[in-house]
Amino acid sequence: MIVHTTPFTRIALRIWSGAIIWAIHFTVIYGFAALACARGYADLKVLGMSLVTSGVLGATTLALVAALAIARRALRSGVESFETWMTAGVAGLASLAIVWEGLAAWFILPSCG
């Protein structure tokens, strides 16, 4: 009989979860901004900001909350393993990248210039 051990797919996805959230966030903000600009929605306002700015900031907030939640869960799991440390680390690094990239929408105006 084969010795079945820790399930690889679950652990790998857990370690990569922060990076996956970063990838989704990056795709969404880039795709959304590109599409909104190409289709002429730059002037629409949402919450007093341009559609692009508010959309990107909204997506950034969601992604950041998700990445931080993963990091927090890993840190509080009480399991002191390499995999848990790496899950928290990747999610932490992803959080930094998400904030750094999303903040561009706050500073770059007009969004479609």
């Binding site: 990056f26 903000i29 880039y30 901004a33 590109a34 600009c37 692009v52 990107v56 690094l93 930094l96 990248a97 750094w100 990239e101 903040l103 561009a104 929408a105 500073f107 770059i108 969004s111 479609c112 210039g113």
Partner: peptide, 19 residues
């Protein structure tokens, strides 16, 4: 390409300096 899109990639290019 629109400046905001460039900014996303500019930010990511700087972020990769960390690792």
């Amino acid at each position: 390409i629109p400046r905001l899109s460039l900014a996303f990639f500019s930010a990511a290019s700087m972020a990769v300096a960390i690792p």
